[in-house]
Simulated assay, not measured.
Amino acid sequence: MSDFREQRWSLKGMTALVTGGTKGIGYAVVEELAAFGAIVHTCSRNETELNQRIQEWKSKGLQVSGSVCDLKIRAQREKLMETVSSQFDGKLNILINNAGTFIPKETTEFTEEDFSTVMTTNFESAYHLSQLAHPLLKSAGNGNIIFISSVAGVIAIPMCSIYASSKGAMNQLTKNLACEWAKDKIRVNTVAPWVIRTPLLDTVEVQFY
């Protein structure tokens, strides 16, 4: 398997930013990219958890660094991308917009705060980070953006109208950016999982970023 990874799927020398990489899908993505040789930067609001994960990855010989960042805050997103640009010499090969949150409620029960939290975390942050990453991805000459969406963005699922809307918007954004940025040699794709056992499902409301 090691030889297969090296010869066919090596990402050696590639750089990647994965948002929300300390647990769930993001954690698995960080490990996979780093195992294939990529140099990965990730982020989380939880500094203690972030440091624990970085030490864990270092003990496995993986090249992973991280930043404490609340992706709901625009200034912190800008600071994150400044850090990534500095660390990777102004070039980025892979952006994984993974961070997200889910609040299960009936549509009539959602508050203004609920709407803002879900849409800012799931959609606005991904949109803004893609904007910020564009010059870095273009400079790399081989840029890739992957949005972690959901089947909820395609079909109707009870108790998640705002979450579904955020993912549907993400799906449409993927189509637009794929066309708009093809000239810059930036590929844009969406991965839309079904239900996966992650910390997001362990309580009524868990935010992983």
Rank of each mutant, 00 (worst) to 15 (best):
M1R: 04
S2R: 15
R5Q: 14
R5W: 12
Q7M: 11
Q7H: 03
M14A: 01
T15H: 13
T15K: 13
V18P: 01
T19D: 11
T19S: 11
T19G: 02
G21E: 05
G21H: 08
K23E: 12
G24I: 04
I25E: 07
Y27D: 15
A28I: 10
V29L: 11
V30P: 03
V30C: 09
V30M: 03
E32K: 15
L33T: 07
A35K: 14
A35P: 08
F36S: 11
V40I: 06
T42F: 01
S44Y: 03
S44C: 14
N46I: 10
L50H: 08
L50E: 03
I54H: 04
Q55S: 06
Q63F: 01
S65C: 07
S65Q: 14
G66A: 03
V68E: 14
V68I: 07
D70C: 05
L71I: 01
K72H: 02
I73H: 10
R74I: 02
K79L: 15
V84W: 09
V84H: 10
V84T: 13
L95Q: 11
I96V: 15
I96R: 07
A99Q: 04
G100T: 05
T101M: 05
T101F: 00
P104S: 08
K105F: 05
T107A: 15
T108C: 14
T108M: 15
V118H: 00
T120E: 09
T120Q: 02
H128S: 06
H128R: 04
S130L: 13
K138D: 02
A140E: 12
N144C: 09
I145N: 06
I148M: 04
A152H: 09
A152M: 01
G153L: 03
I155M: 03
M159A: 08
C160P: 03
A164R: 04
A164E: 05
S166Q: 00
K167S: 08
G168R: 05
M170H: 02
M170G: 03
Q172I: 02
L173C: 04
T174A: 03
K175D: 06
E180L: 13
E180D: 14
W181L: 10
W181I: 06
K183C: 07
I186C: 04
I186N: 08
V188Y: 08
V188N: 11
N189A: 02
N189M: 08
V191C: 11
V191Q: 15
P193C: 15
P193E: 15
I196E: 09
R197Y: 12
P199I: 01
P199G: 01
V204Y: 00
V204A: 04
E205H: 04
V206M: 11
Y209N: 00
